[in-house]
Amino acid sequence: MEVSDVSFAYRNQDGTHMLALRDVNLTVQRNEFVSIVGQSGCGKSTLLRLLAGLMAPNRGRITIDGDATTHPRRNISLAFQKPTLLPWSNVLDNVLFPFRHQSRPVGRDEIARARELLSMMGLLDFAERRPGELSGGMQQRLALCRTLVTEPDILLMDEPFSALDALTRDELGVELLKICAVKPKTVVLITHSIAEAVLLSDRVYVMSSRPGTLCDEVEIKLPRPRLPEVMRAPLFQEFTTHVRDLVQQHSVRQS
């Protein structure tokens, strides 16, 4: 996945433009886990929407496997900050929603895969319930099942764990790593949690705000598989401190 010199501006209601991204360059290797950290409002979500093909950049080029992204693709799955579930469907149907929504047949294999994901996330007992009956953490786990059920090559995640408490967040992150270890995928994670970024990623990008641009890149040389215990290692602390310094440095430059 390659992003070269991408700029994007939103059109305001009075006709003026607001530059959200300027000259963003980013390369993500196949099956790499990359995080983008930055303050809220720095354009991280905009970048993710461009990667998903929901919007087109004003300048620059985004290519995935050599093809320019101009529209959404089916081998990319998107996860949002809000679980974004269907309140009228039960838990299992919510997981199967991508198949139905793409008018693909839902056979025994698909249902089996959905149930397997639900059981991995501890939700199998709730398969017949409605999302409204689940807690916030369970809803987000359910959303993750739905994101993974189509076995996408690329996972784009927009602060999917930010509404959760710290314990649940780490637990889900590690769960995600396990799944990626079994079925490798390319992941781009947007987050404002530095610890989360360091725990999960191969590389962390630091984004400055207004207009957003990627200004630093840190390679996280921590061994895999990573378990929550990694967070106690001195090397982990070193990386988080380093990334935190970079984030602060760029926000100071702003003010």
Binding site: L54, R73, L78, F80, K82, T84, L86, H101, S103
Partner: peptide, 26 residues
């Protein structure tokens, strides 16, 4: 329909009719 729901539907590359039936109508 919430904006995220529409974006989710668009990201799945679903057809206009499916979006109407699966998301907007409910």
């Amino acid at each position: 329909a919430p904006r995220e729901m529409i974006e989710l539907s668009r990201s799945m590359d679903a057809s206009w009719v499916r979006r109407l039936i699966d998301v907007r109508l409910p």
